[in-house]
Amino acid sequence: MTLFKQLLGNKKALVGLTILVAIILIAIFAPLLTEYSPTRRVGRPHQPPSWDHWLGTTRLGHDVFSRLVHGARVSLAVGFGAGLMITIVGTVLGIIAGYKGGVVDEVINFFTNMVLVVPNLPLLLVIAAFVGQAGPVVIALILGFTSWAWGVRVTRSETLSIRQRDYVKSAEMLGEPSWRIMALEIFPNLISIVGINFIGSVIFAVIAEATLGFLGLGDPNTVSWGIMLFNAQNASALSVGAWWDLLSPCFALALLGLGLALLNFAIDEVANPRLRTGGMLKSWSRMVLLGEGKL
């Protein structure tokens, strides 16, 4: 996998990957990282950070650090689960629309454009409101159901151009069935787009989970970053000076978002040679400075 190898040589990708892996490890080993239960009262309400409670306590006396590392599990699970669904739907529909063309394409394209002009968050809110207090699984399902359109659009347009290439044409000449062409000739050439779509969808899903939670549409009994935000906001954390309650999940979200975004930018750079500057610009500038040549 050249794409993968190139990514390992990219600084942005390395930093992003490090952040992501660290958060995943923290989520996996959450119970080992803290002695406190995330759902029990373990201290006095709204204690500032201290040796006993690294990130302080909530108004209910829960340990913020414990809730944060346990919450990472739910946030990541929703993110990756929904991200996977969004990507699969988007990729499959996009390839089919782009390769089949004709009526199939027109129908898929019409619905895609339609979903794209209905604002996503308001739609999510309405659905979530009717579902009631949505648990993580339900939230992931709703996200997968409503957010695939962007993926279809980019996958479709890329498929349209790949369809014209020689190897696809020759596979057609040989009479390969179309599902084989789509799966074996087209899909492998879409890897970077699928990757970008997947990571983007994960970011989107993590943030959407937090947003729905924050707006009071999540299940208050789960431990997730969104629910932490909701509880802190309800406890007026900022106005009573308990900033740790609110800012902890904030920074966690920002860090995860940053890590994933770095990865995404890196894939874009690697996959799109026009955007890549690489080492050549550096050595070019050096040579110009040394007077070895000019433009």
């Binding site: 604002p119 996503n120 968050l121 999510l124 957010s147 962007w150 980019v154 890329e158 970077s192 787009i193 970008i196 779509n197 990571i199 983007g200 969808s201 970011i203 989107f204 943030i207 959407a208 937090a210 947003t211 979200l253 978002g257 975004a261 995404n264 930018f265 894939i267 874009d268 996959a271 799109n272």
Partner: peptide, 15 residues
């Protein structure tokens, strides 16, 4: 192709 910059949490991506 473009990065799906998620425009910060605002559920909708911008290519």
């Amino acid at each position: 192709m473009g990065v799906r910059a998620t425009m910060s949490g605002l559920p909708h991506p911008l290519p």
